[in-house]
Design a protein around this nucleic acid. Sequence first.
DNA 1: TCTTTCATGTCACACTTGTGTCATTACGGC
DNA 2: GCCGTAATGACACAAGTGTGACATGAAAGA
Lengths: 216, 216
Amino acid sequence: MNAGEKQGRYRQRAHTRALLVKTASELIQSGQIPTVTAVAETAQVSRRTAYRYFPSQEQLLAEAAIQSARPLVSNTEFPQDLTARIPLLVETVQRFVYANQGALRAIVRLTAEHVPGRSVGDADHFMPARSNRIEWIRTALAPARKRLGGKHFERLVSALSLCVGIESVMVLTNLRGLPQKEVTRISVWAAQTLVAGALQQAEQRLPSVRKKRRKS
Amino acid sequence: MNAGEKQGRYRQRAHTRALLVKTASELIQSGQIPTVTAVAETAQVSRRTAYRYFPSQEQLLAEAAIQSARPLVSNTEFPQDLTARIPLLVETVQRFVYANQGALRAIVRLTAEHVPGRSVGDADHFMPARSNRIEWIRTALAPARKRLGGKHFERLVSALSLCVGIESVMVLTNLRGLPQKEVTRISVWAAQTLVAGALQQAEQRLPSVRKKRRKS
DNA sequence: TCTTTCATGTCACACTTGTGTCATTACGGC
DNA sequence: GCCGTAATGACACAAGTGTGACATGAAAGA
């Protein structure tokens, strides 16, 4: 038996927990970074109870941020042409990032604490923020998988994960002082250039295949 | 009269301020994220005084982190060949990032809190964390400035700032689970590909200049 | 030397984060 | 239905963050 999930008053527990997350999520989306007290009061719940479900403010906010982020991930319809998919990918992701900037920055704050080298004592910090960014990129790049081969495909995915997402927005905004429009422009250009370069290198690696690329 | 810099007891002020930054820097480098109280006590200074120089803990820690980072920025001798400069730039920066990961992640935590949209009240939050990353990139790319032109040069600088630095390490480490060696490899590839792409596009924009570059 | 500033220290206050302790209430099992 | 336990509330506490208000001592300027 792993976790006593459906035992005792699990219904009440689930309700309280969900209520807290939902309340925190709403407060975050309204622009604030709410205190535990604020969340508890808004949720009509004792502050102590909030701390019973979430060991720290950050845990609560992180979960709220993730929840408020997830619904916006809709399956964007990608065109067939690879070169047209990239701007669509980047613009969609960056628009999403700007729409949820507060929540995503909270996630960054949390993951930034987690220095990979050393896991801290007996704290069971479950790392929450496995974003779906990688999935989006993989989907958008799917048509290039065969042409690149698994290894180079993954390298391109990794490279694109640097050009897209909250971290890229943070860098271009805070370090370079760019407005949203410029941020998106740069991201799109970088992504396109990387994809073009990867394809170009692939062609040079396999010059014999080049002529066959006309098949289907 | 702009700023009363050298008026009054400016010597004493400078000393106290430097002492605070230095103390905080040392505490950060020892792995902690010190409280203002801790910094003040270690520096043998009243807590109130620390708050007189730095309006918030963040300001103090940010400045300390920057200072602890700066000494490691030695003028790396760049070769003349542009294509050889890029790997050197990336490897140097990424090695530096890994060496100061704790401090740099602290900076990220701090800057991540600063949501650009809304400035809070009358606090004169001057954002401190202008890293020198941009300088390094500009220096490394300097030979390409003429070929690219100011606008495209800056775009390339922005794009490279996404592939290099603590954020890139965080993304590739936390999101993709890559070890240091792989992180550096990906970063180098991305940077090289971006530079090559930018140059290629510049040639296509100015075909008349092409014959003057006889590089293979 | 003697004021006059100015940097600093001291004390205090409101607010937040976590945590511990104990009472109360309401749900679930019988 | 009753009872026991589990969820919650009510306080309390230590520590930290910023921020006032006021005292004090030392350096600057005459």
